Simulated assay, not measured.
Amino acid sequence: MRHFYLIILVICSLLAGCDEGFPPLVSVEVTEILKGPPYTKTWKLNEAQQKQFELWLHERKSEGGPLFVTPLPPSFVILLIHANGSRSSLDLFSAENWKHKVIVNSSGKTRVENISPAEREWLLQLVKEMPDS
């Protein structure tokens, strides 16, 4: 029985290490989808904004699952460039029925996650604050 507990402990330790978290960020690029020409506007977050965004990514609890429907086009696409060379993205929406959802594209998987109204407002404020050029 003692070996059983040891095996369970080892499995739990391994699973805890298999976090689907994001690798450290090198850059965060925001693209706003506009209704008319030029149709998109793109900028990079400054270092302080990037640190806030990275902290949010690592502290939040994932609440979502696979994406089974095609949403309307996003209002913002946030491109994450990681230190290991990989890329991820998050899509934010303005459509009423998608306002409190974010689509996460990471490690070849796409999932939809719920965000609270307060999280959404904070994210929008963070990504809309264009850094000093």
Rank of each mutant, 00 (worst) to 15 (best):
V104L: 03
I11V: 11
W98L: 10
H82P: 00
S94K: 03
S133A: 06
I11S: 13
L79I: 07
E119G: 07
E20M: 10
I115D: 00
S62R: 13
I115N: 04
S107G: 15
G65E: 02
L45C: 03
W98Y: 07
K35F: 10
L124Y: 05
E20L: 09
L92C: 01
E96K: 15
Y5N: 14
F22V: 02
P37S: 15
A83L: 09
M1N: 15
M130K: 14
L34R: 06
P38H: 05
L90W: 02
E29K: 13
P117M: 11
R2Q: 15
Y39F: 13
H82G: 13
L57N: 00
S13W: 00
E63P: 02
A95C: 08
L80G: 01
A16T: 05
E121R: 09
G64T: 01
K101F: 12
A16V: 06
A95V: 10
V30K: 04
G36M: 09
I11G: 12
K101N: 10
E113W: 07
F68T: 14
P24D: 07
L123Q: 04
L34Q: 01
S86W: 00
V102S: 06
P117Q: 12
Q52M: 10
K51G: 02
K41Q: 12
Y5F: 12
N84I: 06
K35T: 14
R111M: 15
Q52H: 10
K109D: 15
F93I: 08
I78M: 06
S86N: 12
W43L: 04
M1W: 10
S13E: 06
H100E: 11
S94Q: 08
L79P: 05
Q50E: 11
R120Q: 06
Q49A: 02
L9N: 13
E20K: 11
V127S: 01
W43R: 05
C18I: 00
